[in-house]
Design a protein around this nucleic acid. Structure first.
Lengths: 199, 199
DNA sequence: GACACAATGTAGTCAGTGCCAACTATGTAG
DNA sequence: CTACATAGTTGGCACTGACTACATTGTGTC
C-alpha cells in the first residue's frame, strides 16, 4: 500500500512507473545521453538488471519518455486553450505559447520527441504525437469554420504552425536565440502565421 | 603526399581531418549515439587513444561536426540562391528548399546542430551557425529593400523562416510527416511566410 | 488450499566504451 | 645536433548495456 514504507520488498510494486519518473528527472538534469539504466536502478534501489523486465532496451525507455512527453504536451496545450478568451486568435497564441514554454522547459525531452524515429510498427507508438497535434488541428479547423484561416487540409496548416514553434524552441534550446526572446518571437510567428494563412 | 599510399606511418598526416570524415559517415549511417571514438580509430587504423590528441572529449568531435555542418549548410543555401532566378521570391523558395533537403538528407547531423548547446565560450564556436544564417538574413534584408517583406529587424524575421523550415525538417526526420511531402510543405510554408511578413 | 506457472527481481558475466597516464616515435627550431 | 613540441601507442580503470541462469513472489485453477 504505502509506496516506500518498507525498506525492501522483493517486488517493487510499480517499477515501471518509478523508472519513468526517475528517468524524467535524470533526463532533465543531465540529458538523454547521460541517462544510464544502471543509474536509475541504483537510485530506485533495485538490481541493475531489473529495468530490463520493463524496458528491453535502453531505447525503449527513451521512447516511452517521448510518448509520455507528447501526452503531457497535449494536455498543456489543451489547458492553455481552455484558459484563453473565446477569441480564436487568443487561443492560438495561447496554444503556441504553451508549446514554446513546454519545449524550452523540457529541452532534452523535446529533443527526444523530435528524434524518435518511430522504430517498430506499433500503431499507437507512431501516433502518440497525435495527442499533441489534435488540439492544434482542432483550433485550425475551428478557425476555418469562422473564416479566421483559409480553407485547406487542417493537418497541413497545423503542421506548419507546429513546425514553426517547434523550430523556434529548438533554436532557443540550442542557444542560437536568447531565451528571453522566446515569448516575443512566438507571438510574432503566430501573428505572421495568422496573416499568412488568412482566407 | 599521398593520403593512404603507405600502409602505416607513425604519424598519420592529418588524423583530425580523417576523423571528421569517417565520423561524418558513421553519423549518417548509425547516428550520433552510436558513434564511437574507438571505432573511428579502428577504421582509420590508429590506436584507440590517438583521437584524443585532436578531440579531448567525444563531445568535442560532435561539436566540430556540427560546426562543419553549419558551414556546409550555408554553402548549400548560397548555391541555391545563386542558382535561382532574379526574383526574390524564387530565391527564398530556393533557399528554403535547399535547407529542407539538406536537413533531411543529413538527419543526424541536423539533430547535432540543433542540440549543440554551445558549451565553452569560444566566440567563433557560438557563431558557426552564422554561416547558415547569413545568406537567409541577407535575402530578408534585400526583400525589405524591394518591399517584398515588411520592415523590421531582419534577423528576427529570418529566425522565423529558419525555424519554420527547421521544424518541418525535424518533423519529417522524426517520421511525423511523410518524407515525400517535404517539398510541398516547404513551399506552402514559404508562401505563407511571404504573405504573413508582407509589407 | 495446493500447486503449476507467469511475472518480477537478483547475481554474475561479457564485450565495448570514454577517459586517463606513462611511454615512444617523429618533426622542427635553435 | 640536440632540445623540445607534436602526434601516436600501450595499458588500464570504471562504467555501461545486454545477456543468461537463477530466485522469489503473485495468481489463476482444480
Amino acid at each position: 500500500m504505502s509506496t516506500h514504507a518498507l525498506p525492501r520488498r522483493y517486488h517493487h510494486g510499480d517499477l515501471r512507473a518509478a523508472l519513468l519518473e526517475v528517468a524524467e528527472q535524470s533526463l532533465r538534469e543531465r540529458g538523454a545521453g547521460q541517462l544510464s539504466l544502471r543509474d536509475l536502478a541504483r537510485e530506485i534501489g533495485v538490481s541493475h538488471a531489473a529495468p530490463r523486465r520493463h524496458f528491453t532496451e535502453r531505447q525503449d525507455l527513451l521512447d516511452a519518455l517521448a510518448r509520455a512527453g507528447f501526452i503531457r504536451l497535449g494536455e498543456r496545450i489543451d489547458g492553455a486553450v481552455a484558459a484563453a478568451s473565446g477569441l480564436l486568435t487568443d487561443q492560438l497564441h495561447g496554444a503556441a505559447s504553451a508549446f514554446a514554454h513546454f519545449a524550452t522547459e523540457n529541452a532534452a525531452l523535446l529533443e527526444l520527441m523530435n528524434a524518435t524515429k518511430h522504430r517498430g510498427d506499433s500503431p499507437d507508438a507512431a501516433r502518440a504525437s497525435d495527442a499533441a497535434f489534435a488540439p492544434i488541428v482542432g483550433l485550425i479547423r475551428e478557425s476555418q469554420v469562422q473564416h479566421v484561416l483559409r480553407a485547406g487540409p487542417p493537418e497541413e496548416i497545423g503542421f506548419i504552425l507546429y513546425a514553426t514553434i517547434n523550430g523556434i524552441a529548438a533554436m532557443v534550446n540550442s542557444g542560437l536565440v536568447d531565451a528571453d526572446r522566446l515569448e516575443e518571437l512566438t507571438d510574432i510567428a503566430v501573428d505572421q502565421f495568422l496573416r499568412g494563412a488568412a482566407p
